[in-house]
Nucleic acid binder design. Structure first.
Lengths: 122, 122
DNA sequence: AAATAGACTTGCAAATAAGAAGTGACTATC
DNA sequence: GATAGTCACTTCTTATTTGCAAGTCTATTT
């Protein structure tokens, strides 16, 4: 990891296993879908909401907050009056690319009727 | 994918995205932890239960049933009287190795205090 | 002044998870 | 041969999380 960046600190770790702890951050139905959208170039709340899976708005707000909290994304304003924000990848976020790439590959190969038609920076 | 194996068929797909569909199979707090154990050589219900994260027994039963249902694991008896089963990787299950490997790497690099001390066939 | 837009927040019912206890098949022990 | 023990679950109850609809807040556009 980039030495200027701090590692994520999780309290009440359920074990010392990196996989278990990673799953406590990204192991749910929506988090990696938001990350997929970020890797696909989406940046704003509205763009995430517009994705075909129709993430509930309260869940989206919660996931963005968590991802920012863990330092995987950063919230950066792109205009004042009214304030509008973008959510952008940090280095930690960027390093999730291989995880998403492998999930994409696994799904494409093993789940009938799926199509990887989004272009991503993976 | 091995051509002798059928692709997973999901009903009510939330989108055509391979990532979204893959997450509907493995995107939760426990499923990939069970898979980690399988890759670490664990085979029986009791061994999965004994892992340090203490998976609730009803959840374990549910996840094993789902994984078998999707053809990611197979339930194979290793003795009669009393019947005792093992859960073993199918080809579809085996092909999850890269996903787990990348999650393991990400967690190890980015989460403080984690240690990849289990040996896995990844 | 009223309507519109983007980014959320709130409230509540429904679904899922957690935790503890119980069951059934069989084996080993007293 | 009754009693205790093991393994692999199942059931029950409570707690937590999700999903959906509606509402709020700030600011702009008409």
């Amino acid at each position: 990891m980039d030495r200027t960046e701090k590692a994520i600190k999780i309290d009440n770790m359920r074990s010392l296993c990196p996989i278990a702890n990673a799953l406590d951050i990204v192991g749910d139905k929506w988090t990696l879908l938001v990350m997929r959208d970020v890797f696909a170039g989406k940046r704003t709340y509205g763009e995430f909401q517009a994705s075909p899976e129709s993430i509930p708005t309260n869940i989206l707000a919660d996931r963005l907050k968590r991802l920012v909290g863990y330092g995987v994304l950063q919230k950066i304003p792109y205009q004042q009056r009214p304030v509008r924000n973008t959510y952008q990848l940090t280095d930690k976020g960027h390093s999730l690319a291989p995880v998403i790439r492998e999930i994409l590959q696994w799904g494409t190969k093993n789940i009938a009727g799926t199509a990887a038609n989004i272009k991503m920076d993976l």
